[in-house]
């Protein structure tokens, strides 16, 4: 499985002796002893992320023909932050608020038994639910596609949206399932040996997409 390489997903693992909140929100920077510590380069900086989100916000709006039926659901932790930012942007453009929330998919993952039991993230849905909405799933990195599959299963238990779309900040390839994003911030061809890390100001003090490792 990809988990060990995809830090953005992987850093939510709780361990006994560590509170789940810490586990969820401690950024995993290069640590002493990492083979390639220091060899981390930014592929997107704050202004790039900004522009990408603005474009995605417009694409979502255009595709949905207005904000009324939209529901942006972020996958914790960083997907939730991105969903909120996209909702803010859509509100600025349209002058009316758009529904957003978060959808924790931990209980639906297919790799639960490969790792110690993990803490759950938050699920926040609007009281009207997902029925009849155009749900846009938002995540930071699209990699194997397994998280998105879990999210689709989770949605299935919550109701019946009119349509489900997928927006991601970075698509790094290496899909293991037939899943494709509708809105992509940046396509980032990577090797499996590389690690993509998304930093957001809300949790990591700065906005950046960092790439490290690999044989280049």
């Amino acid at each position: 499985m990809n988990g060990a390489q995809n830090q953005a997903r992987d850093d939510r693992r709780p361990m006994a002796g560590q509170s789940p909140r810490d586990a969820a929100e401690t950024p995993e920077g290069p640590r002493p002893g990492d083979e390639y510590a220091g060899d981390e380069r930014a592929v997107l900086e704050a202004p790039d992320i900004n522009r990408a989100l603005t474009r995605i916000a417009h694409e979502i709006l255009e595709r949905a023909k207005g904000p009324e039926k939209l529901l942006l659901l972020g996958i914790p932790t960083r997907g939730t932050i991105l969903a909120r930012r996209l909702a803010d942007r859509i509100e600025q453009v349209e002058g009316q608020p758009v529904a957003f929330g978060s959808l924790d998919v931990t209980m639906y993952r297919d790799d639960l038994r490969l790792k110690p039991a993990r803490a759950l993230g938050r699920t926040d849905l609007p009281t009207e639910g997902v029925d009849g909405r155009i749900v846009v799933l938002v995540d930071d990195v699209l990699y194997s596609g397994r998280t998105v599959r879990a999210a689709l299963d989770a949605l299935n238990d919550l109701g019946r949206p009119t349509a489900v779309r997928l927006a991601v900040l970075v698509d790094r390839g290496h899909r293991e399932l037939p899943i494709r994003a509708d809105h992509v911030g940046k396509n980032l061809p990577t090797s499996r040996a590389e690690t993509v890390r998304v930093c957001l100001a809300e949790t990591d003090q700065r906005d950046a997409v960092l790439l490290r490792g690999g044989l280049r």
Binding site: P14, M15, A16, M107, L112, R113, L114, K115, P116, A117, R118, A119
Partner: peptide, 12 residues
């Protein structure tokens, strides 16, 4: 039950 059984080893 989730924390004892879901993972490869229990968390509690």
């Amino acid at each position: 039950l989730y924390l004892l059984l879901s993972g490869s080893e229990p968390a509690i």
